[in-house]
Design a binder for these strands. Structure first.
Lengths: 216, 216
DNA sequence: TAACATACATACTGGTTGGTATGTTGTCAG
DNA sequence: CTGACAACATACCAACCAGTATGTATGTTA
């Protein structure tokens, strides 16, 4: 049957179109939330950026809140996984891996001025919406656990000082990163972030055992 | 003349009433901005909290933006001066003074969940409004300079390590404080802030010269 | 081919927003 | 006693907001 070969293909195309519309909405929402915060991001603006209409939006998402939650789950979470969780599982020297991840933090003016997407949303929405808070907390926990895990592993191989408390150090690293990102965003100045990264790298090197310093 | 004694008094009372109205508006605005951010803070809510009407608001301030700027100048800036600039000029041991200021950071649930007022506003408004950014940058600069200054003074008296770069260390301290405040706000958990403060205090003690450690 | 579901598009609504126009009251110099 | 002004109070407005009701083109199924 000719239609039997054609129908599934059409259906698949249709579904792929729908998924692409959904994806464009997520990307546009992510961008607008990044620009002006969740509450101030206008649905109409998101729709214009995405190039779709309100009917499409409310077909894919129940509400603005649901769209925001989806952005956290499907845009922000994978981003953190790709930049912090996976690179730390590479098996390289733990401190080198951490330094590498820190140095890969984008310092282009546009990125610095916008701040950290994860932190932005957490600061705005965690006190106001439990749905956001729980999703964002999961991301922060995964990030901290990935850092703590690689530090623990380093301790067993002798490449990280034994007197370092992995969980504490992981929390401190994330606090410093977010703190510098905040200061740099406030100053609207990439230099602040670059200086911060240098300080962070210096601190990370101090986590090596005294006899095992690779550089500096 | 009886009226000559009465008139100035009445006029002074009137002026004091007006200033009180202005002050109530600033306090209410500060509180609402702290709760939900500047953009999402509704003027009507601020007016209800302050117990005044829109006419009074627009008599004292040109716009919502002007009200926000006044909150930065007249509420947030004095608060930072009172908590960080003045206490560090007390002439005490620099590290002790810094530890004291850090330990005086409020850790009540309500405070932790709301985050840092300065950082909240900076994160939200610095990329969007130059008026906010400049005012907030002045506060951050004063804070950093106060810390750097006390560290420099400590170096001349031998109570702070000479290899510490005061400006760098001051920036790092502020970054860590804001970073932990962010994490604690996101987690909505005072324990995160308390643990952060312990870590900060430990780091501050490490700034003493090796032979001059007072405790720990 | 007729009924039906998917994936939208369009037009609209009630509520809220910052801002304004105008009215009112107490104070005071002349 | 009388304009004049400071310090509001009240009523209102256009713009914008998230959300909805309804229409429709396209592909699928019986």
């Amino acid at each position: 049957m000719l239609s039997a070969r054609k129908s599934p293909k059409r259906r698949a195309t249709r579904r792929r179109d729908s998924e692409r519309t959904r994806e464009r909405l997520l990307q546009a929402a992510s961008r607008e939330i990044y620009r002006s915060g969740f509450q101030s991001a206008s649905l109409d603006t998101i729709l214009t950026v995405a190039g779709v209409t309100k009917g499409a939006l409310y077909y894919h998402f129940d509400s603005k809140e649901a769209l925001g939650h989806a952005v956290v789950d499907e845009v922000i979470a994978p981003d953190v996984r790709g930049k912090w969780v996976r690179p730390l599982q590479s098996g390289k020297d733990p401190i080198d891996a951490l330094i590498g991840a820190v140095q890969r933090i984008p310092v282009r003016p546009a990125d610095v001025r916008g701040g950290c997407q994860l932190n932005n949303l957490a600061q705005e929405m965690s006190p106001l919406d439990a749905g956001f808070r729980k999703r964002l907390a999961i991301i922060f926990d995964a990030w901290r656990e990935a850092v703590a895990s690689v530090l623990r592993e380093g301790q067993t191989h002798g490449s990280v000082r034994r007197d370092v408390e992995p969980a504490d150090a992981a929390g401190l690293l994330i606090a410093i990163i977010e703190g510098y990102a905040s200061l740099a965003k406030n100053a609207q100045d990439p230099k602040v972030m670059k200086a911060g990264i240098r300080n962070i790298v210096g601190w990370l090197r101090s986590l090596r055992p005294p006899g095992n310093r690779k550089r500096g």
